[in-house]
Each structure stands twice: as C-alpha cells, then as structure tokens.
Amino acid sequence: MRNNKPVILRGCAVCVAAILGTVTAFILYSGIEALTQSSRLALFGSVWSPASGKFGILAMIQASILLALSALTLGWVLSLGLCCLMNGLAPKFIAKIIMLVINMMAAIPTVVYGFAAVFLLVPVIRDALGGTGFCWLTAGMLLALQGVPAMTIIMNGAMSQISRESKLTSQSLGFTNVQHLTHVVMPLSGKAMISAAIIGLGRAVGDALLPTMLAGNAIRFAHSPVDSMRTLTAHISLVLSSDIGGGEHLSLLLAGALLLTFCAIVSLAARHLIRGKNS
C-alpha cells in the first residue's frame, strides 16, 4: 500500500534536503577557502586594522559569545519564571494572559524591537550610565526579551504535559499546587529546560538586527556592560562587500562559516536531547 509513494512529493522532500546540503557546503567551503588563502591576514587574530592588513575577528567572536550568553541567562530565567507561573504558581486567568502576551511577543518583528529600543532604551542607558548608550547592556536586554517567547513555549509545552499527567497523583498525596510544581514538575522537566536553553543560545548567537542596531559596532574587546561591541552577525550585516576577495570580504566568509557551524551543532544537540526524551 505504501510502496507507490508519489514521485513529486518525494522529489520535493529530497529537494529540501539537497537545499540544506548546498547551503551548508557552500558557506563552509567559502569559509575554509577564505581561511586557507589568507594566512597573512591573520583572520583568527585579535588585531583588526585594515590599514596594516590585519583582519582578526577574535574580538567579534568574543562579543558574540559574551552577548549571547548574557542575553540567554537573563532570558532563560525570565522564561522559567513565566513557565512556573503558568504551571501552578498563578491562577488560571493569569496563565491565559501570559500565553497571550507570549504569542504577541513572538510576532513582534526584530527590527521593530530594535527601532523602538534605539529611541527609548538607548537614551535611558546613556543618561544613567554614560557612554553612547549603544552597548552590550542595551543589546543584551533586548536580545533577552526577544528570546523569551521561543524558550517559554518549549519549556511550557513539556511542563504542562508533565503537570497534567501527574496532577491527580500528587493531589491525592496531599501536595499543594506549589509543591506539585517544585517537587514533581520541575525535577522532571530538566531536559526541556536544557533544550530551551540550547535553542535560545542558537537564536541569540544568530540574531543580527539587535546587535547591529544597539551594540555600537566598535571592533574591540568589551570589558564592561557599557562598552560598545560588534558581534559576528553584525559584522556580516555591516561590511559592504565592495572589494570581493579582499581581507574584509574573507573575514565575512569566515564569520558566516563559524556561525553556521555553531548553529548547526546547536540544532543537532537540541534535536538529540528532545528525541532522547521521547524514546
């Protein structure tokens, strides 16, 4: 019965897989090629000075990691808080409101977040902490906010399912709602929390708009939250490739390959974790 699979559908499915392969191969190949043909440009170095022919992207790698980790930590805690509220800490109608807010947040375009923050948050930070206001802190706060919906939806999916399955048992054992949450649901949903964090990390590293619009884009190592920084994604979106084959262009390719590798590993890890839970 299942032997006569429609050829067209199958072709499309294979085509999608092939597209993924092409994109990956293409980006990785360009990245590796950039790395091999440019040992004199010191692409993995810490110095960025086009005048002397050094195009090191180490500062951007550091910026990407710092920004993503800080945004992830904040966003993850916020999402966990929301999930706890929705699964026992708060009354039903608040849970409904939270879900509505989450769905609305998920639909806000990144560029709109960035635009509003440029004119609302940046002046506040500038007046409160000095500097230009375009800094690690500003970008990190917005990036955390932007990552909340995806992580909350993943965590809440697992937690509400576990909650439903175990509710009756723990009620009959005399647990209160809060005890049910802290002693049954949360210990059991560890994997969902980790996979939410992994997926959130991938999103935070891969986002280009918020760092570009809010982080200031100076190429240097950031030491304090009010320092300006340029992430790998911002680097790609800022450099206009007028000189193809030059140092700047090659640094873009390397940045793209690094991002792709990282995000692919992240997706595979999250997938592995979620599948492990089902089996």
Binding site: A17, I19, F26, G202, G206, I236, L253, G256, S267, L268
Partner: peptide, 24 residues
C-alpha cells in the same frame, strides 16, 4: 533524515542565509 535536515535548516541564522545569497 529529512526532519534532521529541516531542523538544521531552521537553525541557520537569517544573516548567514543573506550571506549565502550574496556569495551565490
């Protein structure tokens, strides 16, 4: 196999997709 591909594809940052277009 295919859903692994779809997952990885979903994880690719959009800026990298832009870079892909530019390189293409």
């Amino acid at each position: 196999y295919i859903s692994t591909c779809v997952d990885v594809l979903a994880g690719i940052p959009s800026i990298v997709m832009g870079l892909f277009g530019l390189e293409l």
